[in-house]
C-alpha cells in the first residue's frame, strides 16, 4: 500500500490495482458517515466516495482543486456534510462556512460541526446572501452544489458579495433541477453563457467536465471572476 498526493490535502491510497480517494482525517478515529478509515505511516486517512460527492468526482476528473490548507471556503448547499467533512480535512488551518437551508439536514450538519473545529454552520437560503453577509467574510473559494433552477444566479450573487478578486468558484450544475425535459448538454451551454454574461459579475470558466460516471447529468466547473469586474467592482 502507498499513498500518493493529488492536491493539497487530497490523496489516493493505492493498494495493488485499486486506487481510492481519501483525505487526512482532521479528527482521528472518527468516521463521519460510515466511510472507512485507513492508517498509513502514522497518519489516518478517510476514504472519499466520489459517487457521494461532486467535489470528489471533480478531483477524479482531473480538476485542479484551488483549495489550500489555509483556505477560507464558502460552501453553498452543505446538506448533511458528507463533502463538507472532507473539505474540513483539506483545510486544517482554514475555515469553511457551510450554508444549508433545510432544518432537517442542518440537524445532521450541526453534529458534524460539534466535532470539527473549522466548520461554521449557517442555516439560510443561498439565494439570499445578504441574510448571512454579516457573518461570512471574504473567501478564497466558493463551492456550490445546490439543486435549484437558478444555480448560476445564486453563484453570481454570492461571488459578488463574498469572493476574493482572484478567488475561485467551483460549481456543480445539476441539469435535472434546471429542466427535467431538455437535453443536459444544452442546459450546460446555457448556464455557462449565463455565468459569463448575464449578471453584474461575470465569470471566466477555466475548466469544465461532466461528472459521469460518478454523477449523471451533472457538470463540474471551476471559474474565476472575469477581469472586466476587477476595476469597476462595487
Amino acid at each position: 500500500m502507498r499513498v500518493a498526493k493529488m492536491s493539497s490535502g487530497i490523496f489516493t491510497i493505492i493498494r495493488g490495482e485499486t486506487k481510492q480517494l481519501a483525505t487526512k482525517n482532521l479528527v482521528p478515529s472518527i468516521s463521519v458517515y460510515g466511510e472507512k478509515l485507513v492508517e498509513f505511516e502514522g497518519d489516518e486517512y478517510r476514504l472519499w466516495d466520489a459517487h457521494r460527492s461532486k467535489l470528489g468526482a471533480m478531483v477524479l476528473k482531473k480538476f485542479e482543486i484551488p483549495i489550500a490548507k489555509d483556505s477560507r471556503v464558502l460552501y453553498l448547499g452543505a446538506a448533511s456534510g458528507t463533502t463538507v467533512s472532507h473539505v474540513s480535512d483539506i483545510i486544517p488551518e482554514g475555515i469553511v462556512y457551510a450554508v444549508e437551508f433545510s432544518t432537517r439536514t442542518m440537524r445532521d450538519l450541526i453534529q458534524l460541526c460539534d466535532k470539527r473545529p473549522n466548520i461554521i454552520p449557517i442555516l439560510a437560503d443561498a439565494e439570499k446572501p445578504h441574510l448571512y453577509a454579516h457573518i461570512v467574510e471574504t473567501v478564497d473559494v466558493i463551492f456550490q452544489d445546490v439543486a435549484q433552477p437558478n444555480q448560476a444566479e445564486i453563484a453570481a450573487l454570492n461571488a459578488k458579495q463574498f469572493l476574493k478578486k482572484d478567488g475561485f468558484l467551483m460549481l456543480a450544475i445539476k441539469a435535472r433541477s434546471i429542466d427535467t425535459v431538455v437535453n443536459p448538454k444544452k442546459i450546460f451551454k446555457e448556464e455557462i453563457r449565463k455565468l459569463e454574461r448575464d449578471f453584474s459579475v461575470g465569470f471566466e470558466v477555466l475548466k469544465m467536465h461532466e461528472l459521469t460516471p460518478y454523477h449523471e447529468d451533472h457538470l463540474g466547473l471551476v471559474a474565476k471572476l472575469h477581469p472586466r469586474n476587477q476595476n469597476n467592482k462595487i
Binding site: 432544518t103 450541526i110 454552520p121 442555516l123
Partner: peptide, 20 residues
C-alpha cells in the same frame, strides 16, 4: 475569531432548529 464565530454560529443554528 474562528473559535468564537464557530461557537456562536452553532448556537444560532441550534436555536433556529428548535424553532422549526
Amino acid at each position: 475569531y474562528d473559535a468564537l464565530l464557530r461557537d456562536v454560529s452553532i448556537r444560532a443554528a441550534k436555536y433556529q432548529i428548535s424553532l422549526s
